[in-house]
Each structure stands twice: as structure tokens, then as C-alpha cells.
Design a protein around this nucleic acid. Structure first.
Lengths: 405, 405
DNA sequence: ATACTTTATTAATTATTTTAAAAAGTATTT
DNA sequence: AAATACTTTTTAAAATAATTAATAAAGTAT
């Protein structure tokens, strides 16, 4: 792709992005290269205006190190987070701050042959409104539900296209490098690079949403499996409940644990006349309903708390299997459901006590993410920067002139 | 540990060990180094007598490549495979052939405070009888059951020692580098490096024995988890059968699937008067009993076949979980139980059909290992050679002069 | 004030790759 | 059947990349 020098240069930019500030010695240690080499490359990057000097850090017993950082407003990443109904688009600078607002557009993925075209149009529209020159956009990271083949750049569930891949379609339309991944994987990437799992080697990141997703950090890297389908946590056969799952089987974990299940149970409970501060829940607006239930539970509403207890215990049974198989050091609860915070912890812990060999489980912590609903957005940007040293530059301009600047 | 040059030299030796024969161009590609560099190092190795030229390979459209190989009788590896009762010791040369016989000694691990001492003595004794000079022994690889911490070199279940590690104990006694690992991990390593899983990136290796072990090859390397406890497949909670497991919990996979369970079921069946060519089975000699049942089943004995069917189906339920979580390209059935070969396949496949999302399962093959009971022996040797480029040489001679040469 | 750390810069040395050319083969054309 | 065009492997020479070593600078600890 690039020659060695350029690759090392980009590798330094990448490290600075994720760590925000680093000294020359830090970079030398991180990249396993010598200090003089690192120093020379840093000076080149400063001359190019990519890197800036931020002054001196405190001494650790010797001369104080010069600290380097990326110039925030020279390069940008477009981050796209999709779910089956809503797509969020935003622009992030090199310090990982939004430029402007997060844009929300309705874009139904199910049974929508024009979804890819619409998506491309929305992104193009968004970019032109930011008024950032295309040359300054490093890449576009897109997270989406479904079976995503990261290498081929296709999604086996949604956004299907006649010929070629999603990646090549968007790239040739916009003239900017594109990277796609599964939504759960991106949540995990966000936690690993910038969140609760940073500096950890083996972490399971659960994203609790309308389904329940799993992203696995194994040996310090996001694990995808042979075809990119790894982490199908929600469809492991765990129950004998005869509830039909969306996947066609029955007894999947997903049939008993997700925010959707919580909402359904809540509605059924209300109909049966359970006492609660909740009212007027409806499946027509699950987002509102699930937020209401989370709020009520956090305020102590007994019925709402019980809903979480049952769901969380079942997640815990699944987590017990994860711990036995993969011996992680940390389990992170992320995704929109993590707003319910500590309500998940106790029942999950109880399930672990019942179903885990103590020797293994005692080495595994559980944490709630602080990213919540933003995790996928952060992850999509991280996806782009994670590949900054191997990304392929798009040859030539955008074929269609969707972007008016 | 070593300087760069020595490390590259040893890395080439390592590649030659696992591949047996390679050309200079092959090695250059495998190690990502240039051909001239590789060529120079090869010539040095030839001058040292470590590598020999084996003549020319067939042309693939151009000049025929010179093929290189290790000199088989210059270096040796001691391979030790332990189970809870029997320990096997053997010596392997650089072409992975035994020198002499595999030695079998009784060495009970449970409740035996002197096990480590006895093990060391047996190895020392074995080495002195081979009459190979200690300098020519690259290392000792030891596979053992239990929770093995590979980094610290200790076993949390067996072979406990007051101070220090198993590794340091044996090393200082014998003066030879020692590497230990969990038995199931070594079976997986054997399959990856020299067996059914070679050149595969994501493989689950099940070793069916008195328990049921799992070794995971993920992204091309053996995965151990945070503390080295990954792969506890046999204790995932999968049944509601109230059968107490050795781990203290109930409902573990192991309570329904292992060769031990097969033998127990067979004995119970015989007592109930089931028709079969089997007779005189006893739990006092499970090894003999399980061999007899495997033989009978392979000969078509209906009762014996049924025993396998039930056990294999339950394994299949566990495998379905593995496939969903880790999306492997291959499942290998290895260990002593793999002698029953194809008997496992159909019931496992049936379980997968019932419990897997087709899209994922269709990308996963299942194979029977050809190593059988030898897998752990081969894996222990592979463990040593796998670390040949980073192994630490033991400083000084053996402290105790256990070895008389 | 002295000894010890850590970081930064420069020069000298070493390691590695690239380039070029030769050697040894296969495949295709005349 | 001979000539040629194209491959792949091997070796040698030249160019480049990267590290090590040495020194200086800037700090902490005693």
C-alpha cells in the first residue's frame, strides 16, 4: 500500500489519535522503533502541519519530555451509525470532538432496495453542508446491523447491491475511503480504543439494545472469526422456551433478553394490572417506551426493576458461558441499554455465582460503559483511524458529483 | 532475549521444523524478510551444520528452487504428556520422529505432594538413558491437565510447589529450558502446526478423553485468555440434569459427554440387560473399557453405536454455541476418543442443523484428527519449537546432577 | 554539590532492502 | 525443432533505512 516510511508516519498519527498526547519516547516504545527514527518522523509531521507541540509533561525523574498532539482541525472523520430504522451521521475532528450536531435521518433497512443509494445521498448531503474540503476527510466509517463481511465490504443482511460492494459503491460516489463494520463490533472497538476496555487485552463488550450484541477483544484485537460473523451471542441456544426467534430457531438468548423483550414484558404486565408509575407504553414507539422504563427503574419503581432483574439474570447465564470459554478480564455493558447502569450488575453477578467456576470468574470484572448510545458513533470513527496506516487512498475524484461545495 | 540476527536465525529453524522442507523464497515470504537476507542466514546455518540442502524442487514455471531442511540428529526435544494417572515421555528429533520408544510411567497427580519431584526424576532418568548430550536437547515440553498458567509456569490444580514454579523447578534441576501447557491446548497446537488445522486461522480443537477439552486457534494463534484458563468447554452450563460435576456445579457439559460418561452408560446398560457384544466392562479399567466400546461400535454393535450417538449429539449442542460465538472455519475432533472416528460426525452435524443459524454453520467444516492419542505428545514438542526463537537458554549447568551420562 | 534519571540530538555503524543481472527453467511461436 | 518470450530463483553490488553509541540537556534525589 504505502512505503515503509509513510506507513510509519501514519502509524504515529494513529497512535496520537487514540492517545491524544504522547511523547517521543512513548511513541518509540509503542511502535517498537528507535527514538532517533521516531524523532525524525515527528519533525517531518510538524513541518507538514499534522502534528503540534503541546509543551512539556511532568518529569518522571529526568528531563521533561516534549508532548506531541495532532492538529485537531486539519483532518476529519465522518462517522455513520445505523440501526434498522434510524441512521446517525456526524463529523469528528482529530481530538474526537463533534463538529456541529449529530444528524438523525430515518432510513429503514428492512425490505428497502434503495437503502444504499439513500445512505450515500444522505452522507454526501451531510458532507457538503459541513463545508469541509473532501481532501481533509480521512475516511468514512459506517456501522450497521447484520452479517457484515468487513474484508469484502458487503452486508449479507441489509444494503444489498447488484454488483460490487457497499464500500466500493460509496467510495466511488464520494471519492473518500470507506470502512464498514457490524454495529456491535464498533461498540467494542470504541470501548477498547477510548473507553472502559482501553489497555485491556481480553474483553467482552455487550451492547444492549433492541437485540443484544457482542464484540470480542481477544489478545488486544477485535475478533471477527472466519467470515466476520463471530459474536452471535444473541442466537446461542440457551432456552427451551419454544419462543420463535427472528433467526428462525427457538430458544435463542435473544428471545429472553433485550430492551425489546423488556418493553414487551412491561406492556404485558401493565395489561395484567401490575402496579407501576409507568403508563401509556406502546410498541409503536419502543425508543420512548424503553427510555421510560429505564427512568422508572432508576427511580426505584418496583415493577420496572423486576423487569430488569429477570432480563439481566438471563444475560448472566450467557455471560457465564463467555467467561468459561474465553476467560476475559473484563465484561463491559454498553449500548443504549447501559443507561440503566447499575440495574444490570447485581442479577448478572448472581447468575455468575451460580453458573461459573469461581477460580475463573473471580478474574473477571464487570463494568458499565460511559458511552451509552454514543458508543457506535465513536466506534465508527475509531474504525477509520484504526486503519489509517493501511487505508487505500481513492484514486481520482468522485465519479458522481453528489457533493456540491 | 537474543539479538535480532540470532532471532531471525532461530525463526528460520522454527519454520523449517514445522514445514520440514522449504525453499529460500518460501522462507522469505513466511518471515517477511528479503531474499538476500534469508539466503545469507541460510548459508550461515548450513555452515553451522544445522541446516542441510535437500536438492531441487519441481519448477513452478521458472528456475527450480533449492530445498532446505533441518539436520534431524543435531537437536532433539523431550516431550512429556501427562494425564491424571499416566505420564508418557519421549524424545523427538528435528523431523518429528521418535528416537526409541514412548515411555509410560504411572504418576498419579491427585493428592500427591511429591508429583513434581517424581516427574523431574522420571524425565532425568529418561534423558540419561537416551544418551543424548544435554547440549543437544533444545527443550522439554510438558502437557498436563488442570488450570495451567503458561506465563508464570504454574498449575493451579496439580503439581503444586512451595516456592517458585514448575518450570523453574525442572529447569534448575535438569539445566534444560522447560515449557508447560494445558493438555487440551497442546492437542490444539499439534493440530494447528502439523495436523488437520494447518494453515487455518480459526479452528476449534476438541479433545475427547476422560473429560472433554477445547483448544482454540483464533487468528492463527492458540488462544489462552486473560489467565490462561480459556477453553473450559466442559464446564459450560448446558443441562438442567442435576448431575453433580467434578467442578462442584451441576449441569456442566461434562456431566453428559466424555468417554467416561460413555463407559458409565455402557455399564448401566449392560446391567439392565441390553443386547450387545460387549461384556465384562468395569470402571476399574476405563481405558480398556472405552477401547472395547469404540471397537464394538466401529464393528456395528447397535448398543455401542447408540451410546456414541447420544454423547455426540450433546457435544453438538456445545459446538453450536462455539460456532455462533467464534465463527470457526473448522472443528477438529482429536484426543483418544477420536479413534471412534466417523461415529461422532452424524449426531454432531444433526445438532448443528437444529441449533445453528445456517448462514454461519455452512462455513464450518468438521474433521476427525489422525493423531488420536499421540496428539498431546506431538503438541508438547511443538510447544518447545514454537518458542525456539524466544526461548531463554538456561544459565550454567544443572544444579543437581540428576543426569548421569 | 554530587550522583543518578530521563529525554533529545548528532554522528557512526550496522542491518536490510532495492536494484540489477545471471542462471535455470517453462510456454509459445515460427 | 529452434528461437523467443516469459517465470522463478539465486547471487552480487549499490543504496537506503534504522539502530547503536556518544553526548548534551534538563530534571530529581541524596
Amino acid at each position: 500500500m504505502f512505503d515503509k516510511q509513510t506507513r510509519y508516519k501514519r502509524s504515529i498519527v494513529k497512535h496520537l489519535y487514540f492517545a491524544r498526547e504522547l511523547s517521543c519516547a512513548d511513541l518509540s516504545a509503542l511502535t517498537q522503533k528507535s527514538v532517533p527514527l521516531t524523532s525524525r518522523v515527528l519533525n517531518e509531521l510538524i513541518a507538514e502541519g499534522v502534528v503540534i507541540e503541546k509543551g512539556y509533561a511532568l518529569s518522571t525523574g529526568g528531563r521533561r519530555p516534549q508532548v506531541f498532539s495532532l492538529k485537531p482541525d486539519l483532518m476529519y472523520v465522518v462517522s455513520v451509525a445505523m440501526d434498522q430504522l434510524i441512521t446517525r451521521i456526524t463529523l469528528l475532528d482529530m481530538h474526537n470532538n463533534y463538529v456541529g450536531e449529530i444528524e438523525r435521518v430515518e432510513l429503514p433497512l428492512g425490505n428497502n432496495p434503495e437503502a444504499l443509494q439513500q445512505l450515500t445521498h444522505h452522507i454526501a448531503d451531510f458532507i457538503s453542508r459541513t463545508a469541509i474540503p473532501i481532501e481533509n476527510i480521512v475516511g468514512i466509517g459506517i456501522g450497521m446491523p447484520g452479517f457484515v463481511d468487513v474484508i469484502k465490504g458487503v452486508n449479507h443482511s441489509f444494503l444489498k447491491t447488484d454488483q460490487g460492494s457497499i464500500v466500493s459503491y460509496v467510495e466511488s460516489a464520494l471519492g473518500i475511503p470507506v470502512l464498514i463494520d457490524n454495529d456491535s463490533s464498533l461498540v467494542a472497538l470504541a470501548e477498547q480504543k477510548l473507553g472502559a476496555a482501553s489497555d485491556k487485552q481480553n474483553v467482552m463488550v455487550l451492547s444492549i439494545g433492541w437485540g443484544i450484541g457482542l464484540g470480542m477483544i481477544l489478545n488486544g484485537t477485535l475478533f471477527r472469526g472466519h467470515n466476520g460473523f463471530a459474536g452471535e451471542f444473541s442466537h446461542i441456544p440457551l432456552f427451551t422456551n419454544n419462543k420463535l426467534c427472528s433467526c428462525g430457531k427457538s430458544g435463542c438468548l435473544e428471545t429472553e433478553t433485550s430492551l425489546l423483550v423488556v418493553v414487551e414484558k412491561a406492556i404485558r404486565g401493565m395489561q395484567e394490572g401490575k402496579l407501576s408509575m409507568l403508563q401509556g407504553l406502546s410498541l409503536d414507539n419502543v425508543e420512548e417506551a424503553s427510555n421510560a422504563i429505564m427512568e422508572a427503574a432508576l427511580k426505584g419503581d418496583r415493577f420496572a426493576v423486576e423487569l430488569f432483574h429477570e432480563t439481566a439474570y438471563n444475560i448472566g447465564r450467557g455471560v457465564a458461558i463467555l467467561i468459561h470459554l474465553l476467560n476475559p478480564e473484563l465484561i463491559v455493558l454498553s449500548g443504549r441499554g447501559s443507561l440503566a447502569g447499575r440495574l444490570w450488575l447485581a442479577p448478572i453477578q448472581q447468575a455468575l455465582n451460580e453458573h461459573c467456576i469461581p477460580k475463573i470468574a473471580e478474574n473477571t470484572e464487570i463494568e458499565i460503559s460511559s458511552f451509552g448510545y454514543l458508543a457506535e458513533i465513536i466506534g465508527a470513527a475509531a474504525l477509520v483511524m484504526e486503519h489509517y496506516d493501511t487505508i487505500k487512498p481513492i484514486s481520482g475524484k468522485a465519479k458522481s458529483s453528489l457533493i456540491v461545495s
